[in-house]
């Protein structure tokens, strides 16, 4: 008797695995882009913990 290699359950599991893989890949890309934006936006010339320049604070209102 021939064995069916692809049962519906196999395709369901494959769909699940591909889905999780894509989500993990997307998460990695998101963290990478986020890190890039954070680094390029941060003013590294200022000492850590010091206040924002006055202009940025006034932007509150």
């Amino acid at each position: 008797m021939a064995i069916r290699a692809e049962h519906e359950i196999h395709s369901r599991r494959k769909g699940r695995n591909v889905g999780v893989g894509l989500m993990l890949g997307g998460f990695v890309v998101l963290v990478m882009v986020l890190t890039f934006v954070k680094i390029t936006q941060t003013d590294f010339t200022r000492a850590p913990g010091t206040a924002n320049p006055p202009a940025a604070v006034e932007g509150n209102n």
């Binding site: 519906e8 369901r12 699940r16 999780v20």
Partner: peptide, 14 residues
């Protein structure tokens, strides 16, 4: 035949 196993038939999709 896996189709006869209820637990597998009910396996979750994503």
């Amino acid at each position: 035949d896996v189709s006869q196993t209820p637990a597998l038939e009910n396996e979750a999709e994503l």
